[in-house]
Amino acid sequence: MCPGSFDPVTNGHLDIVGRSSRLFDEVIVGVLINQSKQGLFTVDERIELLREVTADYPNVRVESFRGLLVDFCRAQEASVVVKGLRAVSDFDYELQMAQMNIGLAGVETLFMPTNPLYSFVSSSLVKEVAKWGGDVSAHLPESVLRRLVDRMESTRS
Rank of each mutant, 00 (worst) to 15 (best):
L110W: 02
A98V: 02
D92S: 08
S124N: 07
F24G: 09
T10C: 13
S20D: 07
A87Q: 08
Y57Q: 00
A105L: 03
P8G: 10
N115P: 08
P3H: 05
P3K: 11
R86Y: 05
V53L: 08
A105E: 01
G106T: 03
D92H: 01
A78K: 05
R61A: 01
D90E: 02
D7W: 04
C2K: 10
G30H: 07
K131M: 14
R146I: 14
P3L: 07
V43C: 05
V9W: 03
R19Y: 06
S123C: 09
F91K: 06
V29L: 11
Y93A: 04
S143M: 14
Y93T: 03
M152N: 07
F6K: 02
F111W: 05
V9L: 06
R146M: 15
A105G: 15
F65A: 09
L32A: 12
D25I: 00
D25Q: 14
T42D: 12
T114Y: 01
E94C: 02
K83Y: 02
Y118K: 10
R86I: 12
G103F: 01
Y57V: 00
L117W: 11
R74W: 00
Y118N: 12
L110V: 03
A98Q: 01
R156C: 09
I16M: 13
V9S: 11
S21G: 04
L117F: 14
L95N: 07
L14M: 15
F6G: 12
D56A: 13
V62E: 09
Y93L: 04
Y118V: 09
Q35L: 09
L104M: 14
S20I: 09
V29K: 08
E108K: 13
V136L: 14
P8Q: 06
D44S: 12
S137P: 10
L68W: 04
D90V: 00
I33K: 10
T54K: 03
V82I: 13
F24K: 11
S157G: 14
L145R: 15
E108F: 08
L145V: 05
E94P: 00
E153A: 15
P8F: 06
L49M: 15
Q96F: 02
R19N: 11
A105R: 02
Q99K: 01
S79D: 15
W132G: 04
A87V: 00
